[in-house]
Structure formats: C-alpha cells, structure tokens
Design a protein around this nucleic acid. Structure first.
Lengths: 115, 115
DNA sequence: TATAGTGCTTTCCAAAAGGAAAGTGATTTA
DNA sequence: TAAATCACTTTCCTTTTGGAAAGCACTATA
C-alpha cells in the first residue's frame, strides 16, 4: 500500500521547527537572551530587567542556555566575587528570530488594541 | 533617586517578544500552523501529520488558534459532515518566523551531530 | 565577632501541560 | 435496526512549569 504523500508531507518543516522549540521554548529563554544581549551580565541585573522572573527560574534557565552553548558563565575572582553571563557567538544566530518575534509582537498589540 | 537606565532597559524588546510568546508558545501551535499551511485541512489529517499529537491536545490548540484569528473552522454540511481548518490571512504574518525557526533547527541539528 | 554583598539553592506548593484510552453524538447508508 | 464515519470529548493520571519565601556559602570590612 502506498504511504500518504504530498499535502501530508510537512514533516520536513515540522522536524527542524521542533528541534528549535526543544531548545528555545518556554516563557523565559528569549527574554534572558535579550537581556544579556543588551549588556546585562550580572545575575541580579538580569533578574531585575525581566518583570516577574524569580531567582529559581532564572538560575535554571541560565544553566540550560549554558548547556546549549548559547551563553557563557565566567567567574571573576574579585571582591565580592562576580559572576558574569555573556553571549556565546552561537546566541547571535537567534537574532533574526528575536527581531521577527519582536516585530510580530508589536504588530499584534496594535491589532488587538485596534479591535 | 534615578531609575536604572541604559543597559538595563531591554523592556522595549522583551514586551513584544512576550506578547508573541503569549500567543504562540508551546509545543504544538507551530507544527499545526505548518500542517494546515501545506494543505492539511481535516482534523484527522492534521493529527496524522504531526507525530505524537493526541486528539485532545489538537482540539484544544485549534480552538486557541481560532480565538487568535490565525485559523478558521468551517463546517461543510455534506455526508458525513466535514469540518475544515484553513489559514486566516493573519497566519501568513507568521511565515517569516517559521522560516527563521526552520533554518535555525536545520543548522542546530548539523551542529549537534557534528559535535 | 557581626554585618553586608553576591549569587544563588531549598522547600513547599499550585497550576498548566501533556498523554493513554475509551466514549459520545449526529448522520446516513445497508 | 445496526453499522460506519467523522470529529471530537471525557476521564484519569503523570510530568513539567512556575511562584513565594526563606536560607546558605563565601569573602571582606568594621
């Protein structure tokens, strides 16, 4: 028997989209990437720049982003000890997506208010 | 006292990004939009084109996408009754994001396998 | 010795998301 | 009257995510 083909075959798009979502889905990862991207590099600065995030969630998300080589954690042995978070070059590959999301969000808010 | 400014002020990006995420976050919405986009318009066709999705989840996500005016549900009074799901024009505004995610996912898979 | 600053971690709990399996209701043809 | 088709819905359960509040470890200064 033949397999279903044609219209049904969107798997070539769905698989990479899900690969992307496996790494970047959730409420917090993009805001964190954006915050670090504009120069917030300290834990508390990142936390204060993202409304509503708690330290528990921030710590967890930072670990995941580090695991995926999107950010780097560096310990500076000053007093008091500083830890800074910076983008890895790989984080720059997300820039087009961030701009696309931002544009969509701006337009969506206009649409919703305009309704 | 002055408020924190400058580097800390990424809120202008974070707010629209979160507006976007409020509508489109989760594991299933993009795969569903893609599937309908390539021509799957029946419930079961959409379900079979997305590996792992259950009817309960699909029904819930379709309702949300309809609520946000991204898809349209049409009842055809044939026998047996057919229901078709199609894109609203607004769904096309997601196309740039879908392509950006797809490209990122393809590249990411190469990177991970290459490691 | 006490206190302050930094970067978290821990506990406890609630809410949301996700999954498996079976069932429902409307309709029409046999 | 029974079976078939389609599009879901329901139930029950597990997993994941999120949130509030408090605590902890390290170091240096007073």
């Amino acid at each position: 028997m033949p397999l279903k083909r044609g219209y049904n075959d969107c798997i070539k798009t769905i698989i990479p989209v899900r690969d992307f979502l496996d790494v970047m889905s959730g409420k917090w990862k993009f805001p964190i990437i954006v915050s670090i991207g504009v120069g917030n590099d300290r834990f508390v600065d990142i936390q204060e720049s993202i409304p509503g995030i708690t330290p528990k969630v921030l710590a967890k998300e930072l670990k995941e982003l580090e695991k995926h080589q999107l950010i780097k954690r560096t310990v500076l042995s000053e007093y008091p000890v500083k830890i800074i978070y910076t983008h890895e070059p790989y984080a720059d590959t997300l820039t087009p997506i961030i701009y696309a999301m931002k544009d969509w969000g701006i337009n969506h808010r206009k649409k919703v208010i305009g309704t």
